[in-house]
Computed example of a mutant assay.
Amino acid sequence: MNFDIIKERRSLLGLTQQDLADYTGLSLRIIKSIESGKGNPSIGTLNKIADVLGLKIELKVKVLDK
């Protein structure tokens, strides 16, 4: 997954990683790990971030060819 949109949107809104952590109730460590691409956030965690940043989460189901 590519989480660059989170960092880009946060920067556009003038928020620091600490601001995002404070507004979402998540730890700064979690925010940093997600933005660096090293995290494996749950849908709930992503939803908290999306709510603060004014983003929408869309899930797509991919059918695998056999």
Rank of each mutant, 00 (worst) to 15 (best):
M1T: 02
M1Q: 00
M1W: 03
M1S: 01
N2A: 05
F3R: 07
F3L: 11
I5C: 01
I5G: 00
I6P: 00
I6L: 14
I6M: 08
I6R: 04
K7F: 14
K7G: 07
E8D: 15
E8W: 06
E8N: 15
E8I: 14
R9K: 15
R9D: 07
R9N: 08
R9I: 08
R10P: 00
R10G: 11
R10N: 13
S11Q: 14
S11R: 07
L12T: 06
L12I: 04
L12R: 10
L12H: 09
L12Y: 09
G14Q: 00
L15P: 03
L15G: 07
L15E: 05
L15Q: 04
T16Y: 09
Q17W: 03
D19N: 09
L20S: 03
L20F: 10
L20D: 04
A21K: 02
A21T: 01
A21E: 00
A21F: 04
A21M: 02
L26D: 01
S27K: 08
S27F: 09
L28A: 13
L28M: 14
L28Q: 14
L28C: 08
R29G: 09
R29S: 13
I31E: 02
S33C: 05
S36V: 04
S36E: 00
K38A: 09
G39A: 15
G39T: 05
N40S: 14
N40R: 11
P41D: 10
I43P: 01
G44L: 09
G44K: 14
G44W: 06
T45N: 02
L46D: 13
N47Q: 15
K48M: 13
I49N: 00
I49M: 02
I49H: 05
A50E: 09
A50W: 07
D51Y: 05
D51T: 08
D51G: 04
V52C: 11
V52L: 13
V52M: 03
L53Y: 14
L53C: 12
L53G: 07
G54R: 09
L55E: 03
K56Q: 15
I57E: 05
E58Q: 03
K60L: 11
K60N: 03
V61M: 11
V61K: 11
K62T: 13
V63Y: 07
L64F: 09
D65R: 08
D65K: 12
D65I: 05
K66E: 01
K66N: 14
K66Y: 13
K66T: 10
